[in-house]
Nucleic acid binder design. Structure first.
Length: 478
RNA sequence: CGGGGUGUAGCGCAAUUGGUAGCGCACGUGGUUUGGGACCAUGGGGUUGCAGGUUCAAGUCCUGUCACUCCGACCA
């Protein structure tokens, strides 16, 4: 088994990563293109991934005191216009509803690009007293942003996400909340998706429209480009002032509430694909895989094979997500490739000889290796192997980040790196937008984040040579 | 929104000078197979992206338009 072995119908990822990505998502049946440009159909296998993401994140949100609600899809234009920076940030990509049936509306309605404005409007009605705070609400929803260039999962005109919107009586509490959710996203990526992320803050230029602070988790894809994978924003009372969200404090005085919002979207599925996939297709981390174990019978027409497969499935289904492939029209070899393309972590092969010996073959998708195991040991073996795959996939992803992380002391070194490589380039930065703009102009890379874990690389901004105040990660991005 | 590329069956492609649109894979049916993409037989599937135009005749020539895609600018 060799990973370089020719795989039918899939473009080699090292030759054309973009085409590889397209091949994978279509052939693994995650999505299909919709009739309207920029929109995608999420097919059952892709949606199952999203459902697993939802299930895990939703539980984390609830554990931390949040409740789900649902706000409307359409927002009156006047409402969107209340916060100046926010509307300037989103206006260019808003879709508008102008007619109800045959009649033109008196005020046009925007299809939500994000829900801050409608939620703030409602919050201002609901909040009277410090006793109403904190207000911790999340919604699972779709939003629409009319994008010019789109790619399934990574940038689509409509995407699914969750958006948390919370109100607090103090700035400190709201800041804590922002960081708490930021950490939940990072832990989720690490522990479930096996994606290592850089945790940090966005620069002024890159932060969310209307926010005081934006925190981001940045993930590095196989091709060395960065993907913003989850954000949390601290709004201070910018929106509270624009939407008049006030409460009476313990002293009886009126105060503006402090606010946060945070979100993770279907984009992260693109992140899973591009972090772990290989030339055989998808490679899904066990903790998120819709199917963790697939059982493929060999010579399934022979007596007892299908019975044994069914029996094994029933045993394993108690603890794992298990599928069997008993399609009569395909050969075992076809099925092996089929499930590898779909990224199922473990495959069990079982034929008459194995059954006779009380054995079966366990195949690991992550390292493409087969092992003979005793059926009697299968439960503990699967548990151990799934954990092992999860851990190994994280390690491989970490290694990819390490292999694609560079340091530049000055502009010359910086340009040299981006001339031939893709990845994170760590630099010292003076904090001025002028320098930020310059690297973007020259290399199309941007400051991805100002990481919490700072390092002192030198005493000079890599761009202008002045006193630096931050070490930052830069990269080209999706 | 600027620059390039591509549109012929689900996918990949072919069609000579403008002259009856074809091949492989996939798909339907019957059978034989089954430890890394099986085989035989047989069958179905097309307003050549769309709209105009030139011509006796257009997949092919002309104009427009749409979609996809890559590279920039803009963004989760």
């Amino acid at each position: 088994m060799d990973n370089k072995e020719f795989v039918k119908d899939i473009t080699n990822m090292d030759e054309d990563f973009a085409q590889w990505y397209t091949d994978i998502i279509l052939k693994a049946e995650l999505v299909d293109y919709a009739p309207v440009k920029g929109f995608m159909v999420i097919r059952p296998y892709g949606y199952a991934l999203w459902e697993n993401i939802q299930k895990i994140l939703d539980a984390k949100f609830k554990q931390t005191g949040h409740k789900n609600a649902y706000f409307p899809l359409l927002i009156p234009e006047s409402m969107l216009n209340k916060e100046k920076e926010h509307v300037e940030g989103f206006a260019p990509e808003v879709a508008w509803v102008t007619h109800g049936g045959e009649n033109e509306l008196a005020e046009r309605l925007c299809v939500r690009p994000t829900s801050e404005t409608i939620i703030c409007t409602m919050y201002s009605k609901w909040i009277k007293s410090h006793r109403d705070l904190p207000l911790l609400i999340n919604q699972w929803a779709n939003v629409v942003r009319w994008e010019k260039t789109t790619r399934p999962f990574l940038r689509t005109s409509e995407f699914l996400w969750q958006e948390g919107h919370t109100l607090h009586s103090t700035a400190a509490e709201a800041k804590d909340e922002t960081l708490k959710m930021h950490k939940i996203y990072a832990d989720f990526c690490k522990n479930y998706l096996a994606i290592p992320v850089i945790m940090g803050r966005k620069s002024e230029k890159e932060k969310f429209a209307g926010a005081e602070e934006t925190y981001t988790i940045e993930a590095l894809m196989h091709d060395g480009k960065a993907l913003q994978s989850g954000t949390s924003h601290y709004f201070g009372n910018n929106f509270a002032k624009a939407f008049n969200i006030k409460f009476q404090n313990k002293e009886g005085k009126e105060e503006f509430a402090y606010q946060t919002s945070w979100g993770m979207s279907t984009r992260i599925i693109g992140g899973i694909i591009m972090t772990h996939g290989d030339n055989r297709g998808l490679k899904l981390p066990p903790n998120i895989a819709p199917t963790q174990v697939v059982i493929v019978p060999i010579a399934q027409h022979k007596d007892g094979v299908l019975d044994k497969v069914e029996e094994l499935k029933n045993i394993l289904s108690v603890k794992y997500r298990v599928d069997t492939d008993i399609r009569d029209e395909y050969s075992p070899g076809y099925k092996f490739n089929y499930w590898e393309l779909r990224g199922v972590p473990i495959r069990i092969e079982m034929g008459p000889k194995d059954i006779e010996n009380g054995e079966c073959i366990l195949f690991r998708r992550d390292i493409l290796q087969k092992e003979v195991i005793k059926i009697a040991d299968i439960d503990s073996k699967i548990e151990e192997t799934l954990a092992n795959i999860q851990e190994n996939m994280y390690k491989m992803a970490v290694k990819n980040v390490e292999d694609h992380t560079y340091v530049a002391q000055n502009l010359e070194e910086y340009l040299e790196i981006f001339n031939e490589k893709q990845g994170y380039v760590k630099i010292m930065w003076c904090g001025k937008q002028e320098c930020e703009d310059k690297i973007k102009e020259l290399t199309s890379s941007t400051i991805r984040c100002i990481p919490f874990e700072q390092e002192n690389l030198s005493e000079k901004c890599a761009i202008c040579g002045k006193m630096p105040n931050h070490m930052v990660y830069t990269a080209r991005q999706y």
